[in-house]
C-alpha cells in the first residue's frame, strides 16, 4: 500500500498560517527570539499535521482515497489563508499581513559572518539547517526504528503487516501527521525566513515540487537532500531565464521521463520483425 500525501502545499500554507498567528498575534513581539521561533516551529508543525490528519483519519477509518482528499484540501487551505490575509489579519485590505517583528525572523547564515567568515554573503536562512536535520532524523527513524520498520512493511505489503500484528490505523495517522507536520514546518520556515509575513501566493507550489522530488529520490530521505538541492537550483535559475516557466516545464518533463522510464528498468524492449 502506498500512502500518498498530495496535500503538502495546503499543509505548508496552514503551517505558515499558524506560525504567522504566533508571530503577530499570539505572542508579544518582544518575546525572545529563540522562544518565538520555537513556538512558531511547533505551531507550524501542528498546523500542517492537523491539516493532514483530516484525510489521514478518513483514510484510516473509512478508507477514503487520500490522494483526492489531500489534493482537495490544498484549495481549501488557499482560501483559508486568503480569508485571514484579506480579512482579520490584513494590512489595509491588501493580500498580506503586517511584517513580523524581528524576533520572528529566522537568522540568515550571513548574520554569523563575524564568527564564521565563510558565511559572508550567504543569504540562506536557518530553514536549510532545519531541512537537513529533518532529513537526517527521518532517515534514521525510517531505517533503524521499530516504527520505521512497520511503515516500510505496511508500505510494501499491508496484508503481511496486518498478519504480523501491526496497527495499520495508527500508523496511517502517524505517517500522515508527520508528513503534514514537516510540510507545515516548511511553511513556517518560508514565512519566518524569507517573506517575514503571510501573503498571498508566497509559495510557488513548493508542496507540489516536493512530491516530484520525493519521487525522484525514490522516497529516500537522504537522496531527497541531493535532489532538492538540484531542484532548488532549477527553480532559482528559472527566475533568471526567459521565457518564465521554463523551469517548471523542465520539472514536469523530468518527472514524466523518470516515471515513464521506470518500465525500461524492469523490462527490455526488443523489436522483432515478423515476416
Amino acid at each position: 500500500m502506498g500512502l500518498w500525501n498530495i496535500g503538502a502545499e495546503g499543509q505548508l500554507l496552514l503551517g505558515a498560517f499558524m506560525a504567522t498567528g504566533v508571530a503577530l498575534h499570539w505572542l508579544p513581539p518582544e518575546t525572545p527570539r529563540p522562544l518565538m521561533l520555537t513556538a512558531m516551529a511547533l505551531a507550524g508543525f501542528a498546523g500542517g499535521a492537523l491539516w493532514a490528519l483530516v484525510p489521514g483519519f478518513l483514510k484510516a477509518r473509512l478508507n477514503v482515497n487520500e490522494i483526492i482528499t489531500t489534493l482537495m484540501l490544498n484549495y481549501v487551505a488557499v482560501f483559508w489563508n486568503n480569508y485571514f490575509i484579506y480579512g482579520p489579519w490584513s494590512l489595509r485590505g491588501f493580500g498580506l499581513t503586517a511584517q513580523f517583528p524581528k524576533s520572528a525572523w529566522l537568522p540568515r547564515l550571513a548574520d554569523y559572518a563575524r564568527a564564521v567568515p565563510a558565511f559572508r554573503g550567504l543569504t540562506a536562512h536557518a530553514g536549510i539547517l532545519m531541512g537537513l536535520a529533518c532529513a537526517l532524523v527521518l532517515w534514521v527513524v525510517w531505517r533503524r526504528s521499530k516504527w520505521g520498520f512497520e511503515v516500510r512493511v505496511i508500505g510494501d505489503n499491508p496484508n503481511a503487516a496486518r498478519y504480523a500484528g501491526m496497527n495499520l490505523t495508527r500508523n496511517i495517522l502517524v505517517a500522515m501527521a508527520l508528513s503534514g507536520g514537516l510540510a507545515g514546518l516548511a511553511g513556517m520556515s518560508e514565512v519566518a525566513g524569507v517573506v517575514h509575513r503571510l501573503q498571498e501566493r508566497f509559495s510557488p507550489g513548493y508542496g507540489f515540487t516536493a512530491i516530484i522530488i520525493a519521487w525522484l529520490a525514490k522516497l529516500n530521505p537522504l537522496a531527497i537532500v541531493l535532489v532538492a538541492y538540484l531542484f532548488g537550483g532549477l527553480l532559482v535559475g528559472g527566475d533568471e531565464i526567459q521565457p518564465a516557466g521554463i523551469a517548471q516545464m523542465l520539472q514536469g518533463t523530468i518527472l514524466f521521463v523518470v516515471v515513464g522510464g521506470e518500465m525500461l528498468l524492469q523490462y527490455r524492449l526488443r523489436l522483432e520483425r515478423h515476416l
Binding site: 521499530k146 520498520f149 510494501d156 496484508n159 503481511a160 498478519y163 504480523a164 500484528g165
Partner: peptide, 21 residues
C-alpha cells in the same frame, strides 16, 4: 506472497517480521 512476506524488504527483515518488537 499475499500475506506471508513483504517482497521488497530483505530476507533478514522478513525473518524479523514478528520478532522486531
Amino acid at each position: 506472497t499475499g500475506m506471508g512476506t513483504a517482497p521488497n524488504l530483505s530476507v533478514a527483515e522478513n525473518l524479523a517480521l514478528k520478532a522486531y518488537r
